[in-house]
Amino acid sequence: MSVLPIVSQQLSEAGYSVAALEEQSLKYLAFEGDTVLGFVLSFPDTGSLIEHWRSHSQQILKAAQFGLRRAEAKSWNAYLILLSAEPADYAGSVTLSAIEEDLTGTRKIARAGISVEEDARGALLPLLAIQNAPQLDAVDMAAEIRLRTTELPVELVDAFVGAASDSAILQMLEAGQ
Rank of each mutant, 00 (worst) to 15 (best):
P5G: 00
I6G: 02
V7W: 02
V7R: 02
S8K: 11
L11E: 08
L11F: 11
L11A: 08
A14R: 09
S17H: 15
V18E: 13
L21M: 12
Q24T: 09
S25P: 00
K27E: 12
K27V: 11
K27F: 04
A30D: 10
F31Q: 12
T35G: 01
G38D: 04
G38A: 08
V40A: 11
S48P: 03
H52R: 15
R54M: 11
Q59C: 05
K62S: 11
A63E: 00
S75T: 10
N77M: 03
A78K: 02
I81N: 05
L82F: 02
L82W: 09
L83D: 12
A85L: 07
A85C: 15
D89N: 13
Y90W: 14
Y90T: 14
A91R: 06
G92I: 02
S93W: 10
L96C: 08
E100P: 00
L103S: 07
T104C: 06
K108H: 01
R111K: 13
G113Y: 14
I114T: 09
S115L: 06
V116S: 11
E118V: 09
D119E: 07
G122F: 00
L136R: 07
V139T: 04
M141D: 01
M141Q: 01
E144A: 15
R146P: 04
R148D: 07
R148W: 03
E155W: 03
S165Y: 06
S167R: 13
S167F: 04
L170H: 04
G176Q: 14
